[in-house]
Write a protein that binds this DNA or RNA. Sequence first.
DNA 1: TTGGCTTTGTGACAAATATCACTTTATAGC
DNA 2: GCTATAAAGTGATATTTGTCACAAAGCCAA
Lengths: 216, 216
Amino acid sequence: MKLDIQSLHERFGNMFEIELLKELFEYGNYMEVEEGFTLMRPGGYIRTVPILLSGSVKILRADSEGREALLYYLGGMDSCAMSLSCCLDRRQSEITAIANEKTKLIAVPVDKIEEWITKYSTWRQFVFMTYQKRFEDLLGVIDQIAFQKLDDRLLGLLNRKSKQCGCSVFNITHEELGNELATSREVVSRLLKQLERIGKVRLSRNKIELLDTAKL
Amino acid sequence: MKLDIQSLHERFGNMFEIELLKELFEYGNYMEVEEGFTLMRPGGYIRTVPILLSGSVKILRADSEGREALLYYLGGMDSCAMSLSCCLDRRQSEITAIANEKTKLIAVPVDKIEEWITKYSTWRQFVFMTYQKRFEDLLGVIDQIAFQKLDDRLLGLLNRKSKQCGCSVFNITHEELGNELATSREVVSRLLKQLERIGKVRLSRNKIELLDTAKL
DNA sequence: TTGGCTTTGTGACAAATATCACTTTATAGC
DNA sequence: GCTATAAAGTGATATTTGTCACAAAGCCAA
């Protein structure tokens, strides 16, 4: 499948000027990836910055022992400040990026990123906005892990997921949740059971239903 | 005391062009603050972004119950991405900024920040660099609190302080360290005692000496 | 030197989280 | 319907961190 400039225009028309759209179309690399596809691994060099067209991507931080922690989701027309930051510095990736669902995106090469920053004020805006959004996300993560207990963090994560996908039922294992919260599967299982007992979720294999969404 | 453009030039001459320096001089508000001075409180509106000339400032995140966690230090010619972010969005501050020592800085008003971004490419560079630096700092904080245990975090904090001030002796109370690590005074006292027992620090009232600095 | 204040030390617990070693349950594929 | 495998449940126990209550030590100021 190929991208056409018409749909680019529909998506970004009131955000980017037509010249920028043309350049995006010309130099950006259109990709479609399936759920679970790994877009980025720590240590890999980054030469492009992704801009999402549809779907979502989760960005995780990993430590040296293989534990992980969720940083944020990309969705909508988001882009990733980590890649930006790494790109502009020509540094290696320090994060993992995994497609959360079937996702369409444009990969923009580094040199264009920089070129466009001086050339298009709307692009500059976009880059700033990206940094700000991600900055806030990271602050949110810090709030969570510094000040909240695991059960609240777990509930918070489920709520975020719910917002992210617009539904209240997820197909996800306790193992995976454990990863995103940088804890173990058993702990997640136990906490989920607690949450089920007090009526916040309903559990079944590979599936968690978030009740009580009113309290968002 | 007043700032003169000559010293501005000495400090930022190979970073900013002369026109920008003139504007900095004209519109920036020069300040000298003493150790402990609170530059910013959560909830306060931010209309200026600080650029440090000398000294250092620590940036803390606070939760609703008054607990705090250290985010990063500003020093050198640093600026604060939080203020940037808040400023450009006209949002309220979500952090605390406290002078770590006698500190000289220029407070730049919001509208100039934005104006200069389109006007001076060196300023743009500076703003980007600031975002990137702080972004990395936040990632570092996340690594620490997500993956490390308190004793390592404490040691890490002492090491950072050591780098920050260029010396290995600090005048600081356990209480304050507790704040920066978002834990209690007792816990810090105990961990410090442990560290003393294994020869990593030497303790006395209001003072901590970091030994073993070779292992940085 | 004598209080009075701040800082630090510490015992005794409580709570939260991590880890290990299993068992049980669900489900997909034969 | 079986069976292999992934996923989830759970008891026992260890470790880490938090809390409370109070004692001891250092320091300043009258």
